[in-house]
């Protein structure tokens, strides 16, 4: 009796264990199932590189290049803002700040991570957009720049916490060695600690990018939603994620438009898959490197 219960439990444990693989496969399969139907009528090339996204005109056009570029532009802007700020704050928290202050700063960053993206989007509309509108004298503050700033902010917890971890995993002996040779703390930081943590920093940047590209609600609300080829960061854009969120509600199940939105989902899935594999690679390298000594 006891043996049977145990046998059942252990089978359940095993099934749950491989469940994650099953779910990844299911997600990919169902995206493909719906998304691939699009390519019966639209060829892959004109989907990926078409410059017009007119899903409900007659005939519809499903070119996602403007959306890809929209995502790229917003992401690039976010990375430019987030990476230096993220590295700097992680260094400050891990190496410079006294312990009590660093605890407070860390809880501040944790708080930020806890705020839902919908809330940040809402606050962005209410504060950031009018601010940008005034500063740059724009017709509307809902622009790629607003999205980049918002996203940089949202990626910060990911970036800071991973960089901080990798700084903390730099062996103490490196630090002591450098300080013993008469280097200042700052020299130690940028000559010894930064290089030793470089893999972790790269992993943090990759995961930050993943977070930014996949972010949906805040960008939907704040980037102005114009599916046109972007020419400036002060222009409204539309990202891949926002397109799905904005249009799926209206798309008729089983229509070309519906399939096209799933096809965008495939693109997003593949991008996030690659980004996470690369990040994992850097993460493992960081672990290995700092374990050896």
């Amino acid at each position: 009796m006891k043996r049977t219960t145990e046998w059942i439990i252990e089978k359940l444990i095993f099934i749950s264990g491989i469940g994650s693989i099953v779910f990844v496969a299911l997600i990919f399969f169902f995206l493909l199932k719906e998304g691939l139907s699009l390519f019966a009528s639209v060829n892959v090339f004109s989907f990926l590189f078409g410059v017009n996204w007119y899903p409900i005109s007659e005939p519809p056009q499903f070119g996602i290049l403007p959306l890809i570029l929209g995502s790229l532009l917003v992401t690039l802007g976010a990375v430019v803002i987030a990476v230096p700020l993220g590295i700097a704050s992680a260094l400050y928290v891990a190496e410079v700040a006294p312990k009590w202050l660093s605890e407070i700063l860390k809880s501040g960053i944790e708080l930020l991570a806890a705020i839902p993206s919908i809330v940040l989007g809402f606050i962005g509309i209410a504060t950031l957009a009018p601010f940008l509108k005034n500063v740059f004298n724009l017709p509307s503050g809902l622009t790629a720049l607003a999205g980049s700033i918002m996203l940089a902010f949202m990626a910060m917890p990911t970036i800071v916490s991973i960089i901080e971890d990798s700084i903390n995993s730099v062996p103490r002996s490196y630090r002591e060695g450098s300080l013993a040779l008469g280097a200042t703390r700052w020299q130690t930081i940028y000559r010894v600690i930064l290089p030793a943590a470089s893999s972790g920093i790269l992993a943090a940047i990759m995961l930050g990018i993943g977070r930014v590209i996949g972010e949906t609600m805040a960008v939907l609300m704040i980037t102005g939603n114009a599916a046109i080829l972007p020419t400036s960061i002060l222009q409204p854009v539309r990202t891949l994620t926002a397109t799905i969120a904005a249009e799926m509600g209206e798309a008729v199940s089983g229509s070309e438009h519906y399939f096209a939105l799933f096809a965008i989902g495939i693109v997003l899935f593949v991008i996030s898959f690659i980004i996470n594999l690369v990040a994992d690679f850097f993460m493992n390298r960081n672990k290995k490197r700092n374990k050896k000594k």
Binding site: L268, N276, L277, D280
Partner: peptide, 30 residues
């Protein structure tokens, strides 16, 4: 197998939330 499971988990945590929405729509809703 274990390595594959770990990678799957990493990927699940990286899939954009809107893609989960699509997946839920396609598998559970439809």
């Amino acid at each position: 197998l274990t390595r594959a499971i770990e990678l799957a988990i990493i990927n699940l945590s990286g899939v954009p939330s809107i893609v989960y929405g699509l997946f839920g729509l396609s598998l559970f809703v439809e």
